[in-house]
Simulated scan of single mutants.
Amino acid sequence: MPPLAEEREHTSNEHDRASRHVLLTRIAGLLSVPLLPAVEAAQAADRAVFLVPGDTIEVTPGHGLGALSPSRILGGILPAMFVGTKAIAHGLVDPAAACPPEWSHWMAEETSDCVLRGYTAFTRNDAFRAGRLLLTHGPARLKDVCGKAGLSQAVVRNEAELAAALALEDPDSLARCGLVLEQDLVDVITYSVGSAQLRGERISYWGQQNLTKD
C-alpha cells in the first residue's frame, strides 16, 4: 500500500481541519502506512500515494487527474463541482434558465416528487425569479451548495430580503456551483446516508443529525 497523503487545505474552517487530522491519522494507522505532508491533487496524480482530498475533485478535460483511480483515492472525481452537491436535487426555474453544460434536466425531473419545493439557479436573475415563486408559499431558504454543517444559509421572507441576500452572491461562484432555493422548514429532522470504500472494504451508514451551538 502506498503512503498516505492529504490534499492541501484551502479552507480556514477549524472544525474541518481538526476532523480531517483525526480521519487521516486513523486511516494511516488502519493501513499501516506513513502519513506524508499535504500535496496538491495534481501532484498526487504523479506520485505513488493514496490521496485523501478535502472535497470531491473536479476533473475537466485535459486536467490530467484521471490517473487517480478509485484504488488511490478516498473520495470522488466529478466532471463539474456542482454535480457532487445538493444543486442536482432541484430543477431550474424554467428550461431557458442559465446552467453549466454538464447540467442534467432529466435528473431534476426524476427527483421532483421526492424533494422539497425548490429550484437551483446559476445566476442572480434566475435565483431572484425562483425566489419570488417560492415566496408565494411562505419563507424561502437560500443554500450555498458548497456550505457544510448548515453554514452559508439564509432565510428570506420577502422580495427585499431576497434581493439583499442575492446581492452577496459572487457571480463567478454562482455560475460554477449554483445556489439552491427551497421552502423553509422548522423543527426538522435531518438524516444522513452514505458509503465509503477503503482497501477493498466498504462501509455504509445512515443516521440522524443533531444540532449544536456554534
Score class of each variant (00 low, 15 high):
E169G: 01
L142I: 01
R8A: 09
N125S: 15
S204D: 15
D187E: 15
A96S: 12
A87M: 10
C99Y: 08
L51G: 04
R141D: 01
G76M: 07
A130K: 02
G91Q: 04
Q43M: 08
A67D: 01
L36V: 11
E40I: 02
G194W: 10
P3D: 06
R202T: 14
Y119G: 00
A167L: 06
G29I: 05
R8I: 04
A97Y: 04
L24C: 15
G91C: 08
D94S: 03
T212I: 13
V22N: 03
K143R: 13
V193E: 14
P61N: 09
D55N: 11
Y191E: 07
A5W: 04
L35G: 01
G84E: 06
L133Y: 02
G131Q: 02
L30Y: 15
L151W: 03
G75A: 11
D187A: 09
A108C: 10
V155I: 15
L31A: 13
I73F: 07
A121T: 00
N125C: 10
A48I: 07
D113E: 14
S152N: 11
D187Y: 06
R26P: 00
E58L: 05
K213D: 14
A130R: 04
A167C: 04
W206I: 04
A175W: 00
A38S: 15
Q183P: 03
A160K: 05
P34R: 08
P34W: 08
A163S: 07
P139V: 07
A44E: 03
A127Q: 01
K143H: 11
M81A: 13
Q183C: 14
G178F: 12
P3Q: 06
N13M: 10
P70K: 07
F82E: 00
S32Y: 06
V22K: 09
Q183I: 07
L36N: 03
S173C: 08
V180E: 05
E110W: 03
L211G: 02
D170E: 11
G207H: 11
Q208L: 07
G178V: 08
I77G: 02
S19V: 14
A160Q: 07
P95C: 04
A165I: 01
V52I: 08
E58Q: 06
V52T: 03
E14G: 13
M107V: 14
V49I: 09
A164W: 03
I77T: 09
W106Y: 09
S173W: 13
P101V: 06
G54T: 05
Q197G: 13
E169C: 15
P95F: 10
L133V: 06
A167V: 09
T25R: 14
A163G: 05
L151F: 02
L142W: 01
V186E: 10
T120C: 07
A160P: 01
L179V: 13
Q43Y: 04
K148R: 15
R72E: 02
L23D: 10
L65G: 09
P3K: 13
D55L: 10
D55K: 12
S19Y: 03
M1W: 14
F50I: 00
R20A: 15
V52K: 01
F50L: 13
Q43W: 08
L135V: 04
A44I: 07
C146Y: 04
T136Y: 02
S112Q: 15
H105F: 10
D170W: 12
L166D: 12
E6W: 01
L78W: 00
T11E: 13
V59L: 08
A160E: 12
F128E: 12
A48V: 09
L31T: 02
A89Y: 06
D214I: 03
A165F: 04
T56V: 08
A127C: 07
A18T: 14
